[in-house]
């Protein structure tokens, strides 16, 4: 079993094969992964919110917001040995709406996160090769940096690879 490195809310981590990056209990957050298929280096940003605009730049944690976390993830991964921008691809997981809306409460942070993350990836030019977003269920993932596959678990369902 390789080393498993957990990535918490608002955190960003980069690792390489044979390590595994893991995130447990993903709700409205969106997990963005970048993976270099040649050097087998990968990174994860655990995005909580869609947009950092209007928030004091001195006080924010850039890893929390879709618009700032993806550039930060690229900055963290680009200096690793053997990483080239042209080899990087992205996968995204999460963005669910855990609590079904009631007549006086609606929460769409999950959906907004997924939209914002896709926009930020497009802006940076990273191809999005797999996604599992939306719905009402929590998710956990283990990102195996040897195979580049993301093992997705949802309660009551068979795990599957992205």
């Amino acid at each position: 079993m390789s080393v498993v490195i957990p990535v918490g809310m608002g955190e960003l981590k980069v690792a390489r094969s044979p390590e595994t990056l893991a995130v447990y209990g993903i709700g409205s957050c969106v997990i963005v992964s970048l993976y270099d298929t040649k050097s087998k280096v990968g990174g994860i940003a655990h995005v909580m919110l869609p947009d950092s605009s209007g928030i004091d730049k001195e006080r924010i944690n850039p890893n929390k917001f879709a618009d700032t976390a993806i550039p930060a993830l690229y900055d963290a991964i680009k200096n690793e040995d053997g990483v080239f921008k042209a080899n990087l691809h992205a996968k995204i997981v999460g963005g669910s709406e855990m609590f079904p809306p009631t007549e006086d409460y609606e929460n769409n942070i999950g959906r907004d996160n997924a939209i914002a993350v896709k926009k930020a990836l497009k802006k940076m030019g990273f191809p999005l090769v797999a996604e599992d977003v939306g719905g009402k269920r929590g998710r956990s993932i283990e990102f195996d940096l040897d195979s580049g596959l993301i093992r997705l678990s949802i309660l009551g369902e068979e795990p599957r690879d992205l």
Binding site: G25, G27, S28, M98, F99, P101, I109, R139, L155
Partner: peptide, 13 residues
Amino acid sequence: SMTFDMAGAMIDS
């Protein structure tokens, strides 16, 4: 509003 799922997923939401 109710659900049965992973604790972390509910808290982040």
